[in-house]
Design a protein around this nucleic acid. Structure first.
Length: 652
RNA sequence: GCGCCUGUAGCUCAGUGGAUUAGAGCAUCUGACUUCGGAUCAGAGGGUCGGGGGUUCGAGUCCCUCCAGGCGCGCCA
């Protein structure tokens, strides 16, 4: 706001497109500054200090709100001092007026964005790698909604893949009693789970049998043969085993939704791969690709008999023989690969496939939003798909395949859609050697290094286990069980959010379970402290009872200035997070905001010998002023935490 | 071999061209008022920003190159 005025004026004077501002190294220089004259020196071929003087003189002639002084420092910085009392009043009034809306903007202009995230194979419990995906995805959804995008949050469920088939094989054939191969009565099979000695949840039980069965495949050829058979039956769909597989997948999906709801993650639509298959999406896409010449049928070479997309150098000679960079979409046996279906699905997301799913309500979520699911026997509905922009949250290892999908869109002539396809790639979560050793993996915990998580080997930290461990650690100092749950979710979400998406997370229990310093707990603590102060100051009401009319202060201290400056940054941070599609700027901001607030709380006035608690201040105007800053801090922190998917606690 | 990512304090990370002295947290050490929430705060030590070139008035940030680590390059997903 305040800088925008100055930027506008400078843009006019220098006729430039953008004016970047920053903070001067010394407070005496001013409250903010710009180096625009330095970069203009090149263009104008004049000394930057001369340009700065000229701009400063012109600016002094223009009436700029809140700016009391403009000065120049070598080699050509323009520095601005602001009228702090008036500025603070404007910020406080704005936050008070906008409340929970403070920070939002209309940059999205209702543009329809589809964000797909989580996408965990429905065959075992979620682990912390999946959690990173869900947290990044959900935070991006929340951020874009606050920027006024029309966002659909989708979770893709690969219910017809090998992973589900493996668990089905494990359930049907690994332990007695085994399935007879034709019955539609699976009660004896379900009993194996229901009677499990440890009474563990279904997703945990599957975690164990999945790793057991993948290892059993190596030794047991007959079991391996069952795998191909089950795969085939699931693909054929119309049989008891396929129905059983669907039931298993649905049960796991319920478990996953329960897990992520502990972290405040919700969706609009569940997209099932079986529906993509049943609705014949691929056939449509295949015909389009053929018609557009986007794919070719190979009659010779390594891909003979396959339909392929031409990529990179294509088929070429290497030292190791003939290799192909082309991507096979239809195998020589006529079966489409996953990427093929993904092309059709991506077309659906943009509404250019010419086909749609049918839909049914799945149920109401804890946040009060209805969740929908694609369905073979549902109703048609126009509110899904048809997006202008599609964001796929998938880890970095699938970059190549995502590019193939987008490339095919381009080959089909959907260049705009290809351009608006975003692979939000993020690095994986791995275990530190110490963490792996704690899980019983045979590694030297003293040796620095990492271990990849592996569903097949059953190596990984389950999401619910991490949350439970966090709740356990917090239990002692917390008022209620519910607060422990919320605080644990805050800790875990913050932990996953603060690391930029391009960086691998090396998971370590001590680091993840920390409750001091740069953590979600610290942010919650600052917020709860503010609420507590307000509750004591205004015992007749809640924080909402804080004074509505705000009088500009006569004098402004440094901690007050710093706090207000940080609060005023929030809208820009939200925009940045939306532009970068990353939770990290929000997490860092939340911590900085908590820090400046705590500083203000500890030492509101560095010039006096003894700090007076806000609630004990005698001067009513000063008391009201200080408490108003506490209140707008409280509001801003609550808004920021909400964007991070964290419920702000009023007490801990 | 080709492509992408990462390399900043003992450890975990911020910092997507701007300011003498590169910031946080953890860990370590020393402290904290008759306390509005001590899960806090103040202070101390700790850095060739992987190495080397270059562009620029100015580089942790941009370009080139080299080194180290990770991931990808399936008729798997």
């Amino acid at each position: 706001m305040i800088q925008e005025d100055a930027a506008k004026a400078i843009k006019k004077i220098l006729s430039v497109d953008d004016v970047p501002f920053n903070v001067p190294p010394k407070r005496e220089f001013g409250d903010f500054s710009t180096a625009i004259c330095l970069s203009q020196a090149k263009v104008q071929k004049r000394a930057p200090i001369l340009i700065a003087e000229e701009v400063a003189n012109k600016l002094r002639g223009v009436k700029l709100q809140y700016i009391t002084e403009i000065n120049i420092t070598p080699p050509g910085y323009l520095n601005f001092k602001i009228d702090q009392p008036r500025y603070i009043k404007s910020v406080v009034d704005r936050v008070r007026k906008q409340g929970a809306e403070f920070g939002t903007s209309t940059v999205g202009r209702n543009r329809r964005v589809l964000v797909e995230h989580t996408n965990v194979n429905p065959n075992k419990a979620m682990h912390i790698g999946h959690l990173r995906n869900a947290i990044i995805g959900d935070t991006v959804v929340r951020t874009l909604r606050k920027l006024n995008y029309d966002v659909q949050a989708c979770d893709y469920i690969d219910d017809t893949g090998v992973q589900v088939a493996d668990v089905v094989v494990a359930m049907l054939y690994m332990d007695a009693p085994t399935y007879d191969g034709k019955s539609d009565d699976f009660s004896a099979i379900w009993a194996k789970y229901e009677n499990n000695s440890d009474k563990i949840s279904f997703d945990y039980w599957c975690w164990d049998i999945y790793s057991r069965v993948t290892q059993a495949f190596d030794a047991d050829e007959s079991l391996k043969a069952r795998r191909a058979e089950v795969m085939h039956l699931i693909e054929a769909q119309d049989n008891p085993v396929a129905e059983f597989a669907k039931e298993v997948a649905a049960k796991i999906v319920h478990a996953h939704l329960a897990t992520v709801s502990r972290l405040n993650v919700y969706y609009d639509l569940l997209n099932w791969e079986s529906d993509i298959f049943l609705r014949g999406f691929w056939k449509t896409a295949f015909e389009s690709l053929k018609a557009a010449g986007g794919i070719v049928f190979e009659t010779q070479g390594p891909n003979a008999g396959c339909w392929v997309v031409k990529m990179g150098r294509g088929v070429h000679q290497t030292e190791d023989g003939v290799r192909s960079e082309d991507k096979v979409l239809v195998r020589s046996n006529g079966i489409v690969v996953y990427t093929g279906k993904d092309i059709a699905y991506q077309m659906w997301k943009f509404g250019v496939l010419g086909q749609d799913f049918l839909y049914n309500p799945w149920g109401m979520q804890d946040n009060g939003r209805q969740l929908w699911t694609t369905s073979n026997e549902g109703e048609s509905c126009e509110r899904f798909g048809r997006a202008q922009r599609v964001i796929n949250v998938i880890d970095v290892r699938q970059s190549y395949l995502q590019q193939v999908v987008y490339d095919c869109l381009r080959k089909l002539g959907y260049t705009k859609e290809a351009r608006n396809s975003i692979h939000l790639d993020y690095e994986v979560v791995v275990l530190s050697n110490a963490a792996a050793a704690e899980l019983g993996v045979d590694v030297d915990a003293e040796e620095p290094g990492t271990q990849a998580m592996s569903g097949r080997k059953g190596v990984g930290v389950k999401a619910d286990d991490l949350l439970d461990a966090m709740v356990g650690r917090l239990a002692e100092k917390v008022a209620t069980q519910q607060n422990a749950d919320v605080l644990a979710a805050a800790a875990v979400r913050y932990f996953m959010s603060r690391i930029t998406t391009g960086k691998m997370i090396v998971f370590d229990f001590d680091e993840a379970l920390r409750t001091t310093g740069d953590t979600g707990v610290y942010c919650q603590y600052a917020h709860a402290r503010a609420c507590s102060i307000l509750a004591k100051a205004y015992p007749d009401g809640t924080a909402a009872a804080a004074p509505k009319r705000f009088a500009a202060p006569d004098r402004v201290t440094i901690p007050e200035q710093e706090l207000v400056k940080k609060i005023a940054e929030y809208p820009a941070i939200l925009k940045k997070a939306g532009k970068e599609l990353s939770p990290a700027p929000l997490a860092h901001y939340a911590f900085e905001l908590a820090t400046v607030f705590t500083d203000y709380y500890e030492t509101p006035d560095p010039d006096v010998d003894r700090q007076v608690p806000f609630i004990k201040i005698k001067d009513p105007k000063l008391r009201s002023y200080r408490l108003s800053l506490v209140d707008v801090f409280r509001q801003t922190m609550a808004n920021c935490l909400d964007t991070l998917g964290i419920v702000a606690l009023e007490r801990i």
